[in-house]
Write a protein that binds this DNA or RNA. Sequence first.
RNA 1: GGCCCCGUAGCUCAGCGGAUAGAGCACCUGAUUCCUAAUCAGGGGGUCGCAGGUUCAAGUCCUGCCGGGGUCGCCA
Length: 592
Amino acid sequence: MSQTGNPMNVYALVHSRILDALEALQAEGTLPAGLDFAHVEVAPPRDAAHGDLASNAALVLAKAAKMKPRDIAQLLANKLTADPDIERVDVAGPGFLNLGFRPAFWQGVVSAILKAGAGYGRADLGFGEPVNVEYVSVNPTGPLHVGHGRGAAFGDALANLLAFTGYAVTREYYVNDAGAQVDTLARSAFLRYREALGEDIGEIPAGLYPGDYLKPVGKALADAHGPSLLNLPEERWLPMVRAAAVTAMLAMIKDDLAALDIRHDIFFSERSLTAGKDEVAETIEELRKKGLVFQGRLEKPKGHDDADWEDREQTLFKSTAFGDDVDRALMKSDGSYTYFAADMAYHHNKLARGFRHLINMFGADHAGYLTRVKAAVAALSDGKVDLDIKVCQLVRLTRAGEPVRMSKRAGAFVTLREVVDEVGRDPVRFMMLYRKNDAPLDFDLAKVLEQSKDNPVFYVQYAHARARSVFRNVRDTFPHLTAEAPEVANADLSLLRDAGEIELIKKLAAFPQVVEGAARAHEPHRLAFYLYDLAAAFHTQWTKGNESPHLRFIQAHDGTLTAARLALIRANAQVLAAGLAIIGVHAPDEMR
RNA sequence: GGCCCCGUAGCUCAGCGGAUAGAGCACCUGAUUCCUAAUCAGGGGGUCGCAGGUUCAAGUCCUGCCGGGGUCGCCA
């Protein structure tokens, strides 16, 4: 009943061998039958002196087996010493099983990586199941700012990661093109329309969007309609102006995202929920049948005074049944739907499209909204669909350590586009992932362009460029040893004997496990940190060659050894490139 | 007041229930006729906010406090 284990994933491979050994012990009657192996794990020990990999098998089985942990560990050790890949097995501490592998085992990893090519690290965790990743979803009322860029980079990397691990990923953007904010946008655009016709509009009134980015919208309206809209009542021009403005804003947002190489599969219109049949009404009705929608009153919110607040009976969703602290309103006093009501219908729509897994990215300011959305999905799917909401904390923009001042003009943030234009897409995408999503992040405009080891973006990209540079340099001595040469692919890997080379291979061997862990936890930042570690191992080995010429990758007098080292370097470059691809960063061949 | 997030080295932060808690910066010492020194090696630095609990095992999970941030009906 042991699982086969992914042969590209040494952790999984060793895990399956341990399970085999446990089952053999059971078959002999040495271990009792009916043990639960679910918590048996294989992981690299924190202290390298404890070996290459360690297992907790004996510790987690001791109680059920009614045996001492160290005794079980010893039985396992006796079995595993027969494994030709295993050099040493130790029972340590309370009952850990520490395993050391022969060099040939690690050398074989290089060959496996080269054979797997771009598929190295792929896994089938998702079994092709559809997952919906909703990210960015910024109101189409203006350009993206830097904070939005974090959600964009995170969401896109997570989508890549899930696609890499066997999910059918849909990248989705929820367009809030209904409600008061897009009406305000329309009025703001209409003002720019009058301006484009030559009128002096003076200061933009408070409450409207003052940004210059609406000027082109006004001009386009003037070009298309001339002065014909001026004499119409607002209810006549507003829908048309609104549609034009939303379309223009969305085009701008898409363009900003494209600058980061981010492209969504679906832009889902909030307005479409009520355009034909009223999906919001349907959703509310469905919940009403489940007894989760009722007429009731809410208490006045605490913590701040709201002059407009009035006590009234209203339509409520019973989100307290799902852990929310208060039931949530579905209808405004004017009879229209609340944002939340439409959002419930939107998630209902996602479920109807067959998604079994939903992921949403939220900005920090929406964290308080999280519980009611989870409640909605739980209610609508009867708990059968999982929804994970990742909250991205704030981004603090600095330049050489000094906070970057926001523009004085009200409403004008430092836009994402300005930052991307200044520093490029790679630093933005990498640095936005060089923190956990729920920790605040400092983004320094000067630091990310620094060509030094202090800049993680450069450090990792440079490692890849260095690896590629070896293949350029080797042309002088061994022209036939190209990256694709069979002499490299089939090199005698037993020549990779230096401790640093083996260390590098161990890092490469960890990649599939890092990918799996990051995918399961929905934490793409783990890739960024892993890549930094891998780059460090490579830079270390590179520099060793400075002091010890016999460790240089190119050995002019020894083509066989050179080929083996080139195989390692190619594997290294390949994993760096694969990891960078997942987080959406280029792997350059040179840094000049 | 309720809810959410955070609290780990002087600073910025990793840390997947496992063993003696790590990295970068900063500070100190060293390596360059050599595949890119755009790099690397070594050193000092810690009551993991506090107190309980669960567990063979807690920085990690649970509860309560303390401190910082966010948020709190008809904005989205």
